[in-house]
Measured scan of single mutants.
Amino acid sequence: LETFPLDVLVNTAAEDLPRGVDPSRKENYLSDEDFKAVFGMTRSAFANLPLWKQQNLKKEKGLF
Rank of each mutant, 00 (worst) to 15 (best):
Val10Cys: 09
Pro18Lys: 04
Arg19Met: 14
Arg25Val: 09
Met41Leu: 07
Thr42Asp: 15
Asn11Thr: 08
Leu63Asp: 04
Tyr29Met: 03
Phe39Ser: 00
Leu6Thr: 04
Thr42Pro: 08
Ala45Trp: 06
Leu49Met: 09
Asn28Val: 12
Glu60Asn: 07
Leu17Tyr: 06
Asp7Tyr: 07
Ser44Ile: 13
Lys58Phe: 05
Asp16His: 12
Leu49Tyr: 04
Glu2Gly: 13
Arg43Thr: 04
Leu57Asn: 01
Asp34Cys: 06
Leu63His: 04
Leu57Cys: 05
Asn11His: 12
Asp22Gly: 02
Lys58Trp: 04
Thr42Trp: 04
Asn56Ser: 14
Gln54Leu: 01
Leu9Trp: 01
Asp32Gly: 05
Pro18Thr: 04
Asp7His: 14
Leu51Cys: 14
Ser31Arg: 06
Val8Leu: 14
Gly62Glu: 04
Pro23Tyr: 07
Lys53Tyr: 13
Ala13Pro: 13
Phe39Met: 08
Gly40Arg: 07
Arg19Glu: 15
Ser31Asp: 07
Pro5Ile: 02
Met41Ala: 01
Leu1Val: 12
Lys59Asn: 08
Lys26Glu: 02
Asp16Thr: 08
Pro50Thr: 05
Lys53Glu: 15
Arg19Leu: 14
Phe64Arg: 07
Gly62Ala: 02
Gln54Phe: 00
Val38Tyr: 04
Gly40Glu: 12
Phe46Glu: 00
Arg43Pro: 06
Leu63Cys: 07
Leu49Ile: 05
Glu2Lys: 12
Lys58Leu: 09
Ala14Gln: 10
Ala37Ile: 13
Lys36Cys: 13
Pro5Lys: 02
Ser44Cys: 13
Lys59Pro: 00
Val10Glu: 05
Ser24Met: 15
Asn48Thr: 13
Leu30Gln: 01
Trp52Cys: 13
Leu63Trp: 07
Ser24Gln: 13
Arg43Trp: 05
Gly40Val: 04
Leu57Arg: 01
Ser44Glu: 15
Lys26Gly: 02
Pro23Met: 06
Gly62Asn: 06
Lys58Val: 05
Gln54Met: 04
Lys53Leu: 15
Pro18Ile: 04
Asn28Arg: 09
Leu57Ile: 10
Phe64Lys: 07
Asn48Val: 12
Leu49Pro: 00
Phe64Gly: 15
Pro50His: 03
Thr12Arg: 10
Tyr29Asn: 06
Ser31Cys: 06
Asp34Tyr: 02
Thr12Ser: 12
Arg43Asn: 02
Ala37Thr: 13
Leu17Phe: 07
Lys61Cys: 08
Gln55Asn: 14
Arg43Met: 06
Lys36Gly: 09
Ser24Ile: 08
Phe39Tyr: 02
Phe46Asp: 00
Asp7Gln: 11
Leu17Ala: 04
Gly20Val: 08
Lys26Val: 15
Glu33His: 09
Phe4Gln: 04
Lys61Thr: 07
Leu9Phe: 02
Lys36Ala: 15
Ala37Ser: 13
Leu6Val: 09
Ala13Cys: 13
Glu2Ile: 15
Leu9His: 03
Asp22Ile: 06
Asn11Phe: 06
Asn11Ile: 06
Lys58Gln: 02
Thr42Asn: 12
Lys26Gln: 05
Asp7Lys: 08
Trp52Ile: 12
Ser31Gly: 06
Gln54Ile: 03
Phe39Trp: 01
Ala14Asp: 15
Gly40Met: 08
Arg25Tyr: 12
Leu51Gln: 11
Trp52Glu: 14
Asp32Leu: 07
Val38Glu: 04
Ala13Asp: 11
Glu33Ala: 11
Ser31His: 05
Lys59Gly: 06
Ala37Gln: 13
Leu63Pro: 03
Asp22Ser: 04
Arg19Thr: 15
Phe4Asp: 03
Leu9Asp: 02
Val38Lys: 01
Val8Phe: 15
Asn11Leu: 07
Gly62Trp: 02
Glu15Asn: 10
Ala45Pro: 00
Phe39Glu: 00
Gly62Ile: 01
Val8Tyr: 15
Ala45Ser: 11
Asn11Glu: 08
Thr3Arg: 10
Thr3Met: 09
Val21Gln: 04
Asp16Glu: 12
Leu30Arg: 01
Phe64Tyr: 15
Val10Ala: 09
Pro5Trp: 02
Val21Cys: 05
Pro5Asn: 05
Gln55Arg: 11
Ala13Leu: 12
Pro50Cys: 06
Trp52Ala: 09
Lys59Gln: 10
Glu33Pro: 08
Ala37Arg: 12
Thr12Ala: 11
Asn56Lys: 15
Lys26Asn: 02
Asp7Thr: 09
Asp22Trp: 02
Arg25Trp: 08
Thr12Lys: 12
Arg43Phe: 06
Val8Cys: 11
Lys59Thr: 09
Lys59Cys: 13
Pro23Leu: 08
Asp32Cys: 07
Ala37Cys: 10
Ser24Tyr: 10
Ala37Phe: 14
Leu51Asn: 09
Pro18Val: 03
Glu60Phe: 06
Leu9Lys: 02
Gln55Leu: 15
Glu60Cys: 09
Asn56Trp: 12
Ser24Trp: 10
Ser44Gln: 14
Ala45Ile: 10
Leu63Met: 08
Gly62Pro: 01
Phe39Gln: 00
Ala13Arg: 13
Phe46His: 00
Asp34Leu: 05
Ala37Glu: 13
Ser31Ile: 03
Phe4Arg: 02
Ala45Thr: 11
Met41Ser: 01
Thr42Ser: 14
Glu15Ala: 14
Ala14Glu: 14
Arg43Gln: 07
Asp7Val: 10
Asp16Val: 06
Phe39Gly: 00
Ala13Trp: 06
Val10Leu: 14
Met41Thr: 03
Leu51Ala: 09
Leu49Gly: 00
Lys53Arg: 11
Arg25Thr: 07
Ala47Met: 13
Asn11Gly: 10
Asn28Gly: 06
Gln54Asn: 00
Glu33Thr: 10
Ser24Asp: 15
Lys61Ile: 06
Leu49Lys: 01
Leu6Glu: 02
Ala14Phe: 09
Asp22Val: 05
Arg43Asp: 01
Lys53Ile: 14
Gln54Ala: 04
Leu17Ile: 05
Phe46Val: 00
Met41Asn: 00
Trp52Asn: 08
Ser31Pro: 02
Pro50Phe: 01
Ser44Pro: 08
Phe35Thr: 00
Arg25Ala: 10
Lys26Thr: 07
Phe39Arg: 00
Ser31Asn: 09
Arg43Ser: 04
Asp7Met: 08
Glu60Thr: 07
Ser24Ala: 14
Lys58Gly: 01
Lys58Met: 06
Val10Met: 14
Leu51Trp: 10
Ala45Asp: 15
Asn48Tyr: 09
Leu51Gly: 09
Trp52His: 10
Arg19Pro: 15
Asn28Tyr: 11
Val8Met: 15
Ala37Trp: 12
Ala37Val: 12
Arg25Gln: 09
Ser24Cys: 15
Asp16Met: 11
Val38Arg: 01
Gln55Lys: 10
Phe35Asp: 00
Trp52Lys: 08
Arg25Met: 10
Gln55Tyr: 10
Ser44Asp: 14
Gly62Met: 04
Asn28Lys: 10
Phe4Ser: 03
Pro23Thr: 07
Asn48Cys: 14
Asn28Pro: 03
Phe46Pro: 00
Gly62Gln: 04
Asn11Val: 08
Val10Thr: 09
Thr42Phe: 04
Leu6Tyr: 13
Leu51Phe: 13
Lys53Val: 15
Asp22Asn: 08
